[in-house]
Each structure stands twice: as C-alpha cells, then as structure tokens.
Design a protein around this nucleic acid. Structure first.
Lengths: 138, 138
DNA sequence: TTCGTTGAAACTAATATGGTTACAACAAGT
DNA sequence: ACTTGTTGTAACCATATTAGTTTCAACGAA
C-alpha cells in the first residue's frame, strides 16, 4: 500500500527545528538538516504557513512559530500537510449495484466504520504536542 | 494525500457477499454487485485466499469463508489487502543530518508516535467483525 | 547594488492504482 | 470427448501522487 507521505514527518522536522532554534532557520538550513532539496522544504513550509502554524520573513529569510509549541499537536501538522478531499483516510468504491442488498448498503455501513477508525488515529495524534517532541531532542 | 486503497472496501464487500450468500458467489457475480471488472475481484480474492480468509473452488466456481463471520475482523481484512513493507502506515524521511540534534533523533522519536497512532487505528478496526456488518444488510 | 533568500512554475522519474484484454488450466454436464 | 463457465495470471494502459530538480522573479537588508 501507499504510505502516508513523508511530507508529514518532514513538517514535524521543520517545526521542531524552528521551535528549538527560533533564529536563523532559513529554508536552506532546514534542508541541510532534513537532507533534501530546499524547494521541498519551501513547499511544505508554504503549507504550514497556510495552516497558520508559522510565518516566514521574505527576503531576509527565517521563520517563526505562530503558536506556542505546547499548542501545536501532531494532528495540526498532519492536517496542514495532508490535504485530502473530505479528509477521508479510507477510500470506498463507488457505484455499487443497488439491486443487491450488500451493494445497496455497503457504502453507508463502511462510512461509519472507517470514520471511527480514522478518528481513533486522529485522537492519538492530537495527544502529542510539539513541545513534548522537542523535549526529546537532547 | 493518497487515500487507503479501495481494495479494502471491495474486500469487505466480497466477504460480506459470501457470508450472506454462501452459494453461487462466483467472481463474475461479485463483480456485478461491486460494479467493477471481474479481474479486480479475482485479484483481491487471491489476497484474501492467501491470508487464509476464504477458499475458492476452481473450475466450477464459487467461494466460501474459512472462518466464521464473527471471527473475521476488519483488521484481518485490512491486513490481507494492504500489503505494505513493515506494516508502517506512516512514512518517515530517511537519512536526516546526524550533525543536527533534531536530525539525529527525529526518526526514533517519530517512530514511536506514528506507531501509537497506527495502533489506535488498528485497534478500532479489530473491534468490528464481519458478522456485525452483515447484520446491517437488511 | 549586491547578496542571500523566498515563492512559484515547469519539468522529470518512479511508483501505486484501477482497469482492460487475453489466455491457459480446471471441473462439471452433456 | 467436447463444450461451457469459471479461476488464475500475465501483460498492458492511463492516471495520479510523490519526491526531486532546475529556473527565475520578487524581496529585504547591508
């Protein structure tokens, strides 16, 4: 199966760097720590910016958090970079045969189950804050 | 983001059909209910077979469950069709810069968090059985 | 004005997905 | 033995996402 994009883990990396070192965090510096291309970093920082998690100083460079690290959860970051239509983690096949009792009800029944599973995942992500993570970078 | 493949929802559909109607469930019949190509169904049935969830009668056609519906959970089905290396739902960027305190520890720290979130999802899937689903197809 | 930076467009390669056609192997009924 | 319907694969194909790259305009400060 296709894994959830490493955009998520990179976004956590970016925000951790800024939280630990609020000054001199340019895109190129972050790219060196992540060990990837600066454009990848800028793209993800653009998403984090759009989500209201950070602001970037154009021209001069550098970024800072718009919330306290204890108020940014993994779920916030996950949502910022996993732009998905309808926020549906699970895909359900469509247009099943309505002539069949199973085909007629499968979508509705699975919607409820998948939503419950997705919520369980998201609730766990919401339990961890950026602060808790940066405390472990010693 | 990329959603979890509809293979999963189709697999649930297939097993539900067989549970509700243990006779005359050929691949073509199932394909008609799912409203897709029979080869798609055969491919997924092959995965379910490999996972020990069902057996197929070659030549004559038809399939039957190898476990009772109350002993097949959504997690069993999920695992059968979501073949992923290491069962890691979340992907983590690799080869971060070890010179940096964040880069040096991010993988280890995120492994634990992502595993916890994935487990929360899987525990929820494990709570629902095929029997509970088929009861709702009335 | 120069320099480093950000933001964005355009492009590429690799991979997963859902679908299709085609065909050999198989088991039953006639 | 032949026919029929089915299963199990292989070989394609189109599409979308992902991660990465090159390029360049715009920006801000020294």
């Amino acid at each position: 199966m296709r894994q959830i994009s490493s955009r998520f883990s990179i976004a956590v990396h970016i925000l951790s760097l800024i939280a630990v070192n609020p000054h001199d965090c340019t895109g190129d510096f972050i790219a060196t720590s992540v060990n990837t291309n600066p454009v990848i970093i800028r793209r993800i920082m653009g998403m984090l910016k759009k989500a209201g998690l950070l602001e970037v100083r154009p021209g001069v460079g550098g970024a800072s958090l718009l919330k306290q690290p204890e108020q940014i959860t993994l779920l916030d970051i996950y949502r910022a970079v996993n732009v998905i239509e309808g926020d549906q983690l699970f895909r359900i096949h469509e247009e099943a045969n309505v002539q069949c009792p199973v085909g007629r009800n499968i979508e509705h029944v699975l919607q409820a189950e998948f939503k419950a599973a997705q919520t369980a995942l998201e609730n766990r992500l919401a339990k961890t804050t950026l602060r808790q993570l940066t405390e472990r970078f010693r």
